[in-house]
């Protein structure tokens, strides 16, 4: 086992444990602001995972878009709905139990599939920064979805403004 592999393994397990704990805290936190902050931690963990997965552009975008923009938006929404922050934010007992059962079932079946399936793994995993090739792909092969995505964002923005606008 190479030194980098050990390093990667250590980082992976540490960050993964953090993410899972943070995710669980986020889901269980009573206070919405805390919940949002726990999510920030999880999403940052995702960014680290992207680095481990050689997706340097996505890692940066993750920080910018999620940890930066979306979470701010979330926090704003939480702030703009005062007196909702501290309300008991969990559903009734029955709902939570069935939610847990469902999640466990999905988890079980997914893990079963993922581990039992024989993945067509490539000999040499993708390595090195991928940003450049990603940029070329987006401007060539995926240019149409790319443009549609920009349209979607514009529409989403306008929609959000229209919906949230005060009469």
């Amino acid at each position: 086992m190479a030194a980098t592999d050990v390093f990667v393994a250590i980082v992976f397990y540490l960050v993964a444990a953090t993410m899972i704990l943070a995710g669980a805290s986020m889901v269980l936190a009573r206070n919405m602001v805390r919940s949002a902050l726990w999510l920030v931690l999880t999403l940052a963990g995702v960014a680290v995972m992207y680095v481990l997965l050689s997706a340097d552009f996505l890692a940066v975008a993750q920080i910018l878009v999620y940890v930066g923009a979306i979470m701010i938006l979330m926090l704003f929404a939480i702030m703009l709905t005062p007196n909702q922050v501290d309300l008991p934010s969990a559903a009734p007992q029955a709902q939570r139990i069935s939610a847990a059962l469902t999640a466990l079932a999905v988890f079980g079946i997914s893990v079963f599939v993922m581990l039992s399936h024989r993945w067509n793994v490539r000999a040499v995993p993708l390595d090195a920064p991928s940003s450049e090739r990603l940029g070329v792909l987006l401007m060539s092969t995926y240019v149409l979805p790319f443009e549609i995505a920009s349209l979607l964002l514009t529409a989403g923005m306008i929609g959000a403004i229209v919906i949230a606008r005060e009469e």
Partner: peptide
Amino acid sequence: ILFCIGMYGALSRSNAVGVLLSIEL
């Protein structure tokens, strides 16, 4: 694991913002 945590949150949260957070996860 993260997906299922998010799912549990989306299903068990009663605050709409909480649901959205879970979906992000």
